[in-house]
């Protein structure tokens, strides 16, 4: 055949071998490098602890004997959505400051990679939850995260109110004691006045001043101590 007769096969082996070695070494390096990168990424400490809600949902989904009813699965899915939302919020809050720190070289690149990995992971899980929700009830995926958001807010509201319920008892106790002191002081003053009226008028001024001072000291003691306590309360909130 015409073209092949003219080719010098022996002379061509050298460049061919060169090309082969070049390409295969590049390929080997690329695959080796990628594997190492992937290994490094997975060996990074994860940003979040294991997603308990996700594990519970999937464990329930895979339970065979007895099969878990849809109701429980839906509840588990909502818990998972709430957790995803929570994580997403944390990631977004951390991202901006971390970027700033990274630009100033205050933190290593590792930390930022961990955050990006967490963000990606959470986004994947959010898509997953939406798909699962749509599989249960068509259209649920569109608003499951709205519901999850309200659930998180509702939890906060109730926790705050529970805190007030706790202070109620101590406040009442304080006021009852305070009231008793005021009353006893008042009674003492009345008694003093009575006894003073009965006794000689010469002893009157000294005794009167003494009892008045007592009352003032007790009165100013209570609120000051109370004010300190309430400041602490405000700081906690």
């Amino acid at each position: 055949m015409w073209p092949f007769d003219l080719v010098n096969w022996v002379g061509l082996t050298v460049p061919l071998a060169y090309l082969f070695i070049l390409v295969s070494s590049l390929a080997a390096f690329s695959s080796f490098y990628r594997k190492r990168q992937a290994a490094k990424a997975t060996s990074l400490q994860p940003w979040f602890p294991p997603n308990l809600q996700r594990d519970i949902y999937l464990s329930l989904l895979h339970m065979e004997n007895p099969k878990v009813p849809d109701g429980v699965l839906k509840a588990a899915l909502m818990r998972r959505a709430t957790e995803d939302l929570n994580r997403m919020m944390q990631v977004q809050q951390a991202k901006q400051p971390l970027q700033g720190l990274l630009q100033r070289n205050s933190v290593g690149n590792d930390l930022f990679q961990r955050l990006q990995h967490a963000e990606h992971e959470t986004q994947t899980d959010i898509r997953d939850v939406m798909q699962e929700a749509n599989a249960f009830t068509p259209g649920w995926g569109n608003f499951i995260f709205q519901s999850a958001n309200e659930m998180a807010h509702n939890k906060q509201t109730r926790e705050k109110l529970a805190e007030f319920n706790n202070t109620r008892a101590s406040e009442k106790e304080w006021w009852d004691q305070r009231k008793a002191t005021i009353q006893s002081d008042f009674m003492k003053e009345l008694d003093d006045e009575k006894s003073e009226a009965a006794s000689a008028p010469a002893a009157k001024p000294a005794a009167k001043i003494g009892s008045d001072d007592d009352a003032v000291i007790v009165e100013s003691g209570g609120p000051a101590e109370k004010a300190g306590k309430s400041k602490k309360k405000k700081g906690k909130n």
Binding site: T42, S43, S59
Partner: peptide
């Protein structure tokens, strides 16, 4: 280090 969670796996509880 605990390996990061992969989207295809989960821990069976």
């Amino acid at each position: 280090a605990v390996p990061a969670q992969s989207p295809d796996t989960f821990t069976l509880l």
